[in-house]
Design a protein around this nucleic acid. Structure first.
Length: 554
RNA sequence: GCGCCUGUAGCUCAGUUGGAUAGAGCAACGGACUUCUAAUCCGUAGGUCGGGCGUUCGAGUCGCCCCAGGCGCGCCA
């Protein structure tokens, strides 16, 4: 509905310009809002105000020209169009037009909410990308939920989306992993195992070592340390990666591509990237190391890509990785990182620009910390000791649905407090439950109705029965859904969806308590069945975008 | 010291990219089940939007300066 108003305004302005009633160009973004005050109508626009300053006329005069034109062209759609305050134009849409939304929803089914906002542009979204050195923990869970949901939102708003997981399977941390496992293995063999200072502490390391022991017995004792560590490293990373895949699977997340860092080395892509930068005079040698001139692109200092000892930095791989992304021709590249990597953004952006990419098409979404609570009391975690709470533990305790919702109920750059007890509650305090319950309630109504021979049928229903009061309020909320998704996509902010669904569920619960859907009035019942069926569809669709089930019975 | 994020009701947070009188939920109090799911709903209260200055028709939103908290600032990953 909102985009329809925008379209009308655009057409109207176009005509006014061609008739020379307005001389400036159409603003590229016409702003239409839902006003906070009910008296102001259903929609409001401020177009007249920015235009006024360019036209050198009072805003209210401009507004009146626009209003006159729209009344002429599309007057039958509105019950009133008024000019208010400094120059707002307020629209009140006729109920007949509002109820049409129900038809859209029931006809389009799961496609309701779809739009062509993204114009088929290719978007790559890389998320989770945890090193295969340990299981996924809570923080990864938040990144996973955000990334997956954002991908779904971008898809439904008309982008072509690819999801990717980047595996850091090269570098020091992998050797540390190998040494850690080998040390535990030696312990199991009754040997002196000097556990590395910087080793991985978690119990999972012992478990992996035990598996190696079970499979190889004492064999590794006869290997050189180097060979043994390498075996442990490969065994462990494979095992851990398998675990990560399983965790993501049970979290409902699938990737289109698992991109291994080692392939960059094998295919010489890092060298290639460095050579390209070198040819553009963006690489220089200093103190025996190779530096990238990231300051040329706004970074605060230049960055090392090859250390004095000849080994490459993590950043070097990342440059090559993003060069690979650029070569794949995406219109938008989204990386989801932990907020502790924020210092990394300028240099990554610099690298992209240096390689000829558009810095503005690169977006690094930073995900803030998650802290766990249990009924308001903090659950302490220490990564250093390996005492972190894993994603698997969370899913096992509160379930996939609650976990996903909780990870999405704050905007990314806010700290998130995840209360495990709240997530398990079956009451209106728990937002997931509240939304799912609304859905189940509707299913129950539809079920009962169908036993009475009543089914929602948009062709047969007289929607005049739902064009007032609580019914109309619900319809207006449903009509917001498509533009809400666009707004999520535009700002890369999936959390709005969780708020929207909560609000819609609240409106429904309130409606439910005041009004009977199935009543003696057959016409009213049929119309309301269409209404609640539409609510059910939007709830289900929204939840599915968030990766949350919509149970029919609870 | 420099940079990024955060600061909105007692608590947890929204605020649609500068719009009209700043909103939810929880907690508290009082009510509603002979009902399509009471696992729900209705009503009542709460504010110097951290502070200050500026930009303009208009600021929670933008700029600058402070204050508080978090996180970064490696030839670590």
């Amino acid at each position: 509905m909102k985009s329809k108003i925008e379209e009308l305004l655009r057409l109207s302005l176009k005509e006014l310009i061609s008739k020379h009633l307005i001389s400036s160009a159409i603003p590229n973004e016409i702003q239409v809002d839902r006003p906070t005050q009910k008296e102001f109508g259903d929609f409001a626009t401020n177009v007249a105000m920015p235009l006024a300053s360019r036209e050198g006329k009072p805003p209210r005069d401009i507004a009146s020209i626009i209003v006159h034109n729209i009344k002429q062209r599309h007057g039958n759609m509105f019950s009133s169009i008024e000019i208010a305050g400094p120059g707002f134009i307020n629209f009140k849409v006729k109920p007949e037009y509002w109820v049409g939304v129900l038809g859209d929803i029931l006809r389009d089914k799961d496609a309701y909410g779809k739009s062509s906002y993204g114009k088929g542009k290719k978007v790559q979204i890389e998320f989770v990308s945890a090193n295969p050195t340990g299981p996924l923990h809570v923080g990864h869970g938040r990144g996973a939920a955000v990334g997956d949901t954002l991908a779904n939102i971008l898809k439904i708003t008309g982008f072509l989306v690819e999801r990717e997981y980047y595996i850091n399977d090269v570098g020091n941390q992998m050797n540390t992993l190998g040494r850690s496992v080998f040390a535990r293995y030696l312990e199991l063999c009754g040997e002196e195992g000097d556990f590395p200072e910087d080793g991985y502490q978690g119990d999972y390391i012992r478990d992996i070592a035990a598996d190696i022991k079970a499979r190889y017995q004492d064999e590794l004792l006869h290997y050189s340390t180097r060979e043994a560590v390498a075996l442990c490293r490969d065994f462990a990373s494979k095992r851990i990666l398998k675990g990560i895949r399983e965790d993501l699977d049970s979290f409902g997340i699938e990737f289109d591509r698992w991109f291994s860092e080692s392939t960059l080395h094998e295919e010489g892509k890092i060298q290639k990237a460095v050579d390209i930068l070198k040819s553009r005079d963006l690489i220089y040698t200093s103190d025996g190391a190779l530096w990238f001139r990231s300051t040329r692109f706004g970074d605060e200092k230049d960055r090392v890509v090859r250390k004095r000892d000849g080994t490459l930095t993590y950043f070097a791989s990342d440059i090559a990785y993003h060069m690979d992304k650029l070569e794949r021709g995406y219109d938008k590249i989204i990386d989801i990182w932990g907020a502790d990597h924020h210092g990394y953004v300028p240099r990554m952006r610099a690298a992209i620009e240096a390689l000829g990419g558009d810095g503005d098409s690169f977006h690094a979404l930073l995900i803030q910390l998650v802290s766990l609570e249990r009924s308001g009391r903090p659950v302490y975690m220490s990564t250093r000791k390996g005492e972190f709470v894993t994603l698997k533990e969370i899913i096992d305790e509160v379930g996939k649905d609650a976990a996903r919702y909780f990870f999405l109920m704050r905007k990314c750059d806010s700290h998130l407090v995840f209360d495990l007890e709240l997530a398990k509650k079956k009451s209106n305090e728990n937002p997931v439950f509240y939304i799912q319950y609304a859905h189940a309630r509707i299913c129950s109504i539809l079920n009962k109705a169908s036993k009475m021979g009543l089914v929602p049928d948009i062709g047969a229903a007289d929607l005049g029965y739902v064009s007032r009061g609580d019914d109309l309020a619900l319809i207006k909320a449903l009509a917001d859904y498509p533009s809400l998704l666009i707004s999520c996509a535009r700002n890369l902010e999936p959390h709005h969806l969780s708020f929207y669904l909560l609000e819609l569920a609240g409106l429904f619960h309130s409606f439910y308590n005041k009004n009977k859907v199935i009543s003696d009035n057959r016409e009213l019942s049929l119309a309301r069945l269409c209404l609640v069926d539409a609510v059910r569809q939007v709830l289900r669709g929204g939840l599915s975008i968030m990766g949350i089930d919509a149970p029919e019975v609870m």
